[in-house]
Amino acid sequence: MARVLINLPARAKRGQVIEIKTLIAHPMETGYRLDGKGAAIRRDIIKRFVCTYNGEEIFQAELFPAIAANPFIAFCTVATESGELVFSWTDDPGQTQTETRHIAVE
């Protein structure tokens, strides 16, 4: 389980633009480096990040090898109704890390 930091307001007014910031611990190994013995280090990057708001996809990103370790992704959305935001990161070995956060909209 990778370490994750997610920041979004716990409550917001309906129609308000909110900023969501996410940070995940990941080596983002490019696949272009060699180890101490000269063998290629296998590529291991996060390929895809998706955020859904009450089941609806509101943001997604494709990531590439030039992106540094521990990728930080920030984006904005409009607070429409109370509910769940689900964040998921999928990496090269195919593992997906999913985190859920709640927001209360008044």
Binding site: L5, N7, K21, L23, A74
Partner: peptide, 9 residues
Amino acid sequence: DDTANPGML
């Protein structure tokens, strides 16, 4: 910004 500082991980 503690939410952008990777050291916080």
